[in-house]
Amino acid sequence: MAARSRGRLQCSEPAGHAQESLHELCSQIIARLGSMRPLRLQRKVNSRCSVQGGKMSVQMSADDVAVVFPEVLEITDAGLREDVIGIWQEIAAEMAWSSLHDIPASVRQESFRPLVLHIRAVTRMALALSEIAKEINNRTYDRDLLVAACLLHDASKPVETEPDDVRPCRRARKSLLGSRLQHGVYVAHKALARGMSLDLAQLLITHTHQSNTRGTTWEAAALFYADFADTDAALSAEGATLHIERWKS
């Protein structure tokens, strides 16, 4: 049977057919989308960037990732921490952006703020919520799992979006992958491919309203509400329409 330990999948026998089928399906989809990716104009890049196959390739060391997301060092499980860092390294190498800091939090509503700051804010908000719930309601939580999920919940956005060269004022547009796959599916696929837990993959899938599946754990709730709380805080500061004003069940 598969057992979960701090967000990683530890198996004494092969994983279930459902997980294997998801791996196979995602692999086929990504392979097809990769072959369909249109060529992009080559642009100037720094010494750590190159253009390969029509997309930007940014090479990041583990230390580079930790500088961008210092919260990753709060993950006590070394294997889980390495996997979170590894996924960000893979995403950076695949994205069409020259730097993680160039990517807006969203294509339209939050195009004015960096994705990196949103991810860090969500992580800290979710931890704050969980610590208060632990103190007031005696509700314990898996801290490593929560931190990993928060740091990865929008990790697919760098490949779901690309710079908008046609309308620079918008900064970003959806990539082919972003227009074909639900938000979060790609990073969940990467997590499962690394042997990370199904619990973690579910958090990555269910944090968004695009998902037809809802989270069922306290960690899922903490991530979900922290995600929208940070977004609405930023929108409110800009005098923009909040998500809560447009909320639909």
Rank of each mutant, 00 (worst) to 15 (best):
101 H>C: 10
104 P>L: 12
182 Q>M: 10
30 I>E: 06
135 E>K: 15
9 L>G: 12
140 T>P: 04
119 I>H: 00
164 D>K: 11
187 V>G: 01
20 E>S: 08
52 Q>Y: 09
49 C>R: 07
72 V>R: 07
139 R>C: 13
2 A>R: 09
97 W>K: 05
18 A>N: 05
226 A>C: 07
121 A>M: 11
121 A>Y: 02
45 V>W: 05
194 R>F: 01
107 V>H: 00
186 Y>G: 05
6 R>L: 12
102 D>G: 05
223 L>R: 04
64 D>W: 10
134 K>Q: 13
62 A>S: 15
10 Q>L: 05
192 L>N: 01
214 R>I: 00
54 G>L: 02
145 L>V: 01
147 V>M: 06
65 V>Q: 02
130 S>D: 13
121 A>N: 14
83 D>T: 06
137 N>L: 09
74 E>Y: 03
45 V>K: 10
164 D>G: 02
97 W>L: 08
109 Q>W: 04
194 R>W: 00
7 G>E: 01
225 Y>G: 07
125 M>I: 14
108 R>M: 10
222 A>M: 11
8 R>L: 14
118 H>C: 04
74 E>A: 12
146 L>H: 04
7 G>M: 03
44 K>A: 12
81 R>T: 00
224 F>N: 02
179 S>A: 15
225 Y>S: 15
85 I>L: 01
15 A>M: 10
19 Q>H: 04
78 A>I: 05
118 H>V: 00
76 T>K: 13
81 R>A: 01
169 C>R: 15
9 L>M: 15
189 H>N: 08
171 R>E: 06
241 T>I: 05
100 L>D: 07
160 E>Q: 14
14 P>E: 11
153 H>T: 11
148 A>R: 03
44 K>I: 09
74 E>K: 12
112 F>C: 05
10 Q>E: 13
59 Q>L: 15
164 D>M: 04
16 G>T: 12
38 P>S: 03
25 L>Q: 07
61 S>T: 15
34 G>T: 13
103 I>W: 02
207 H>D: 03
56 M>H: 06
66 A>P: 00
5 S>C: 13
33 L>S: 02
240 A>I: 06
151 L>F: 06
61 S>Q: 04
237 A>L: 12
158 P>V: 06
113 R>K: 14
149 A>I: 00
12 S>D: 10
225 Y>I: 09
145 L>R: 00
120 R>H: 07
4 R>I: 11
178 G>R: 02
168 P>A: 01
235 L>T: 06
249 S>Q: 14
102 D>K: 14
76 T>Q: 15
107 V>Y: 02
243 H>A: 08
146 L>V: 13
194 R>P: 00
119 I>D: 05
13 E>H: 14
224 F>H: 09
112 F>K: 09
80 L>P: 04
8 R>W: 04
161 T>Q: 11
58 V>E: 08
20 E>V: 07
83 D>F: 02
114 P>E: 09
130 S>I: 00
161 T>V: 08
111 S>C: 11
29 I>L: 12
43 R>T: 13
140 T>R: 11
